[in-house]
Simulated scan of single mutants.
Amino acid sequence: MKKILLFAVLILSIQSYAQETKNKNLGKNEFKVNLAFLIAGYPEITYERLLSNETSFGITMGFSIDNSTNSENNTNYNFSLLPYYRIYFGNKPNAGFFIDGNLALYSQKQRHGDFFSEDKKGGTGFGFGFGIGKKYKTKKGWVGEFSFGLTRTLINKDKINLLYPRFGITVGKIF
């Protein structure tokens, strides 16, 4: 009986250790969707590769579902591609407060001005920018983050807005 009890305790402790190890080593890849932009008719998906416990590299791609240029459309952009490098300052690996630097390639639709802005013909923008935010992780590998950033275009300033704003309420999974 003692041998069976000892064997059961050994198996349970090995299983418990294996589960703890598995939770700590969730993976180095994340796939995320920006819910804020999805609701606005501009789905934005992100792939992020965790480089260390404090850094990562990612790429975000967004595209418009509605290509019309009328003023009822929720977004002024056709397409965006943004690679970024991120640094985390949290207690957990790759979680907590972060800052990032990015490049952006994006296409803006024609816009008719209002009280605050002038008419823009539309076109392609390329520039660099920054972002800040906070990321949360679960033990099972789910992630959620809130972020905000700005990118300044270096080309076609007369055809598109000078600044490309970014914000997100993003959810995803580590694999």
Rank of each mutant, 00 (worst) to 15 (best):
G125K: 01
S71E: 14
I99G: 13
G144F: 03
G62P: 02
G96L: 12
I39W: 03
E44C: 07
N29C: 04
T138G: 08
E48F: 01
I65H: 12
L35N: 00
T75W: 10
D100C: 02
S68I: 12
Q19L: 15
F63P: 11
N73L: 07
E145T: 02
L38S: 06
G58V: 02
M61K: 04
K134N: 13
S80L: 12
P83V: 12
G123N: 05
K22P: 00
F98V: 01
E118L: 06
D114H: 14
N53K: 14
G127E: 03
F146V: 08
N76Q: 10
N53M: 10
F128D: 02
P43S: 03
G113H: 06
Q110E: 12
K120R: 12
F31V: 03
F63C: 12
S68L: 10
N94C: 09
H112I: 09
S68K: 14
N102A: 09
F89S: 06
F146M: 10
H112T: 09
G90W: 02
L105C: 03
T21N: 15
P83D: 02
N23T: 06
I45V: 12
N25H: 13
K109G: 10
K140M: 09
Y136S: 14
D66K: 11
L105N: 04
L82R: 15
D119C: 11
G62L: 01
G58A: 12
K121C: 07
F31H: 01
G141M: 00
Q110C: 04
L82D: 15
T124E: 08
L51H: 02
T60E: 13
G101Q: 08
I99Y: 14
S71W: 11
S117A: 10
